[in-house]
């Protein structure tokens, strides 16, 4: 995209004492793009999001959001952002619709505009019938959707989502993904962090894989998989005691990752790899052939799994 990026980070660093939570991140986000930060807990994703959200002062490096420096123009930047934090901070003492209206007032928006906008957003978040409910009575998925609706109250240029579906059941996640996908289709710029590879694959045009505050890789989900993994993966289990031993006999079939509970064999054809395993006289307790995912990319890059 030739247009000016809405976020430009260069050598972004955030230190807490001696510990660098974010250790030199550089990335750009184009308008309308859906950009992801994928990494395990403690990778520095949320810290990065707070810096991009103009609430956390960076230790060093440069950062421009919508062309403005958050150190100087925090409130101006924040008036153009929508933020969905990791931990819900809806006001539990207010009703559902009032949460939207009160939040909209922080942007100085007139009540007349907010009443109409709140109704539109409740419709969008599929919460129109819960407008008068107490926040405490909503399910986890509904609270997240309300938080997203709240983040849209100022029609933000960029929507920041920090682990939007963590802690939700599968059905609630799919409803949420659908809503986010609609926003993406409408051209909203999304920046999201996640430690779920499927979420990153569904929602992100492009992502960076982050570990220990550093970027391990960058690209579209498909390109990352192509670059750092094979087309397919064969998962074989020999029992916890025997996985490591069996791995020695699997040498040469493909690249191996030995996990405590299973051995992963990276091959372009999983079926062919499985045939070779049985031809060598090995008898795994279970076997599974699947497509490579971002989980494999992460494992390859860091030697660790995303969810530990």
């Amino acid at each position: 995209m030739p247009s000016t990026p809405v976020i430009v980070a260069a050598d972004l660093v955030k230190k807490y004492g001696d510990f660098a939570a974010v250790d030199g991140l550089s990335f750009e986000v184009a308008p309308g793009e859906s950009f992801g930060l994928l990494g395990p807990n403690g990778a520095g994703k949320s810290t990065t999001m707070r810096m991009v959200g103009a609430v956390s002062t960076r230790t060093s490096g440069s950062l421009a959001i919508l062309g403005l420096d958050p150190n100087r123009s925090g409130p101006e930047i924040r008036s153009r952002l929508g933020v969905v934090p990791q931990a819900d901070n809806l006001d539990n003492e207010l009703r559902v619709r009032d949460n939207l209206i009160v939040y909209g007032r922080y942007f100085g928006l007139p009540l007349r505009h907010l009443r109409r906008r709140a109704d539109e957003l409740l419709e969008f978040a599929q919460l129109a019938d819960r407008a008068g409910s107490k926040v405490d009575d909503l399910s986890g998925g509904m609270k997240r959707r309300l938080t997203i609706a709240r983040a849209l109250i100022n029609d933000p240029r960029i929507l920041l989502l920090d682990e939007p579906t963590t802690g939700l059941d599968p059905q609630a996640r799919h409803i949420l993904w659908d809503r986010l996908f609609r926003l993406k289709e409408q051209g909203t710029t999304l920046v999201l962090t996640t430690h779920y590879m499927d979420e990153a694959e569904q929602l992100c045009d492009r992502l960076i894989v982050v570990d220990k505050g550093r970027i391990m890789a960058e690209g579209s989900p498909a390109a990352l998989i192509r670059e750092h993994s094979t087309r397919e993966v064969l998962e074989v289990r020999f029992g916890s005691e025997r996985n490591a031993g069996a791995a020695a006999d699997l040498e040469g079939i493909g690249r191996l990752e030995v996990l405590p509970d299973r051995v992963l064999v990276y091959a372009d054809s999983g079926e062919a790899a499985l045939e070779e395993v049985t031809r060598r006289g090995l008898q795994p307790m279970t076997s599974l052939v699947r497509r490579s995912s971002l989980e494999d990319v992460f494992l390859r890059l860091t030697g660790r799994s995303l969810i530990e």
């Binding site: 959200g53 409130p75 901070n89 006001d91 922080y106 942007f107």
Partner: peptide
């Protein structure tokens, strides 16, 4: 943490 939410707004 409503104060955190207010601060994420302007």
């Amino acid at each position: 943490p409503t104060f955190v939410g207010m601060n994420a707004a302007p």
